[in-house]
Amino acid sequence: MSLSRTDQHLVVGLRLCALLVASIVLLVFLFLLTESWPILNHISWSRFFTDHSWHPVQGFYNITPMLSATLLTTLGALILATPLGIASALFSRYYAPSFVATWYRRLIELLAGIPSVVYGFWGLTTLAPLIANLHPPGVSLFTAILVLALMILPTIALTVEAALISVPNAYHSGAVALGMSRWSMIIAIVLPAAQSGIVSGIMLGASRAIGETMAVLMVAGNVVQHPHSVFDSVRTLTANIALEMAYAMGDHRAALFVSGLALMIMVLGFISLAELFKWKSSYA
């Protein structure tokens, strides 16, 4: 590439900025590792799974209850939000009259921007008492799943709709010309064509659900236990960090950074899965 002197100076400056940006990710990992090193250094990592409980002050570091809570809330939220999100996207793309669709989309965009602390607060003050009527204590795995599902629904709906929009118009006009009904057209043509976009929407929702802290912290009850029913209180990894960082010292603090690392690994796993899927579907 031929660049003038001015351009070359600019590129050097831009490269430095980009390097700084890229180094943030490396710094995040570096600090997660160095902060969790004290504990990883002198206890075996398997103790995070085999200790008989999570009592970090006494030196017991079993994070499996938190892991199971994180996975269960995420899974539950995905099971609820995925069909709703896809239906919502189908509604605004194929069913709603254009005027309604515009406003509906605006509503969904607005919801995607509502702070998680507000969702948590609403869950705590409105939803939890309702569920307590059904089955006390109200702050539970079930409440957390509902609130998380509400939170990731707009994310899934918006991503899926973007994928639907990218399906060429010719596909469905062709289907309509063949006399297919709207639903069979969606099932047979639109959804398969938008498949990779839909999967990436779900993965995006999943990584948001795994990493969500405030809403879950406020409505899940925060008892460290493996739940026996959906109405039991649970504590997720993220909530655990938020609750205990304030007073954690030494190995306890390091153990929290280990759970941060575990979160990162889970989220990266989801991204790689999404990437793999994209790669597979584009080379199939």
């Binding site: 995040v28 600090f31 160095t34 990493g211 969500e212 990162m264």
Partner: peptide
């Protein structure tokens, strides 16, 4: 390679959970 590296870093950065940013910010 540099641009690809920066883009990859951005993908990861975008997916870091906010509580992990909290941990990082606190430590760094």
């Amino acid at each position: 390679i540099f641009a690809g590296f920066v883009e990859r870093c951005l993908d990861v950065l975008a997916s870091v959970p906010s509580i992990v940013f909290g941990l990082f910010g606190n430590a760094f």
